[in-house]
């Protein structure tokens, strides 16, 4: 956006502003951000938006088709399921559950991953080598396998599947933090800080961490899309959230039983997951290319 400039004053946006300006260049990314904002609103205000309780069973209105079908009713916009629960409310709460939990998981994984990564990046020698390599190869194990093991030890349940997914998300944060810290440690500003007498803790938290924030946000959006997919996959397989709770994957596997009678019961939760992941990926892509453009300048 051209700023009105009366004087020949130069405009220097801060790095964050710069990223935002570059981000806005991509319309698709901005649309993604709007959709993500919509889902975030659902997460926060679900009880106000949803017309009914997601687990309340209206026994007089079973399997009502969506409102746009000839015999649908406007009272239940997306119809009701086989035990008379309002599908719209379940979807709203489902988005809340799936996206909200994924956000918590990503934050948790980020915290642990950055801590380990920083440790691995700033140490040298055998300890660092063992930590890195063993971690590298061990954490190549698929999420689903980790989830299966954790579920086998602790039993089926949402919280247990959350442990599994956060465990599976940690390695990529470790990798990226470690590589980033390694690279930054070679740079002049870090050397300057070190010459000023900064110890390692200072060096990481005050010198390096502020430069890492954007990388972490990009990484976080990637992790978020993986977390959403994983948590709904586990719900779908019956290893995560259990039946009455409105989790999108669980809803999908429930809808499977009545897919013949109401195809919308698998179309709606599935497309909710799809649009959610799509918006996260669009924002992530936009941020990444914004960051890349900024670095290039």
């Amino acid at each position: 956006m051209p700023r009105f400039s009366l004087y020949q004053e130069e405009y220097h946006p801060s790095p964050l502003q710069h990223t935002w300006l570059a981000f806005r260049q991509s319309h698709v990314a901005v649309i993604g951000l709007w959709i993500l904002g919509f889902f975030a609103t659902l997460v926060v205000f679900a009880p106000l938006i949803a017309p009914f309780d997601p687990v309340q069973q209206h026994t007089d209105t079973l399997l009502i088709p969506p409102a746009w079908e000839p015999n649908g009713s406007i009272e239940h916009l997306f119809g009701t399921d086989s035990v008379g629960r309002d599908v719209l409310s379940r979807l709203v709460y489902g988005c809340r559950m799936t996206l909200g939990i994924s956000l918590i998981l990503v934050l948790l994984a980020m915290l642990v991953g950055v801590a380990i990564g920083a440790l691995a990046g700033m140490t040298r020698g055998v300890r660092s080598s063992v930590l890195n390599h063993l971690l590298d190869s061990l954490l190549a194990i698929p999420t689903l396998l980790i989830a299966i093991i954790i579920v086998a030890i602790l039993g089926v349940g949402l919280v247990n599947s959350m442990w599994a997914i956060s465990l599976a998300l940690i390695p990529q944060f470790v990798h990226n933090t470690r590589d980033f810290v390694r690279n930054e440690m070679k740079k002049d500003y870090v050397t300057a800080a070190r010459l000023d007498g900064a110890n390692k803790v200072h060096l990481f938290f005050i010198t390096i961490l502020p430069n890492m924030v954007e990388m972490l946000v990009v990484q976080g959006t990637m992790a978020l899309s993986i977390a959403i997919l994983d948590i709904s996959a586990l719900g779908f397989l019956g290893l995560g959230a259990q039946a009455p709770s409105p989790e999108l994957g669980t809803m999908l596997s429930e809808g499977l039983k009545i897919a013949y009678m109401s195809p919308s019961s698998i179309a709606l939760p599935g497309s909710a997951i799809f649009v959610m992941v799509l918006s996260v990926n669009l924002v992530g892509d936009g941020l990444r290319s914004a960051l890349r453009n900024r670095m290039r300048q």
Binding site: V28, S232, G249, L252, I266, I273, V277, D285
Partner: peptide, 20 residues
């Protein structure tokens, strides 16, 4: 655009849709 759509699709949902 096609690839973003592709990797945003939950694989279990895609499999179900293909079956349907």
């Amino acid at each position: 655009a096609a690839s973003v759509v592709g990797y945003s699709t939950p694989v279990f949902w895609l499999a179900l849709l293909m079956i349907l």
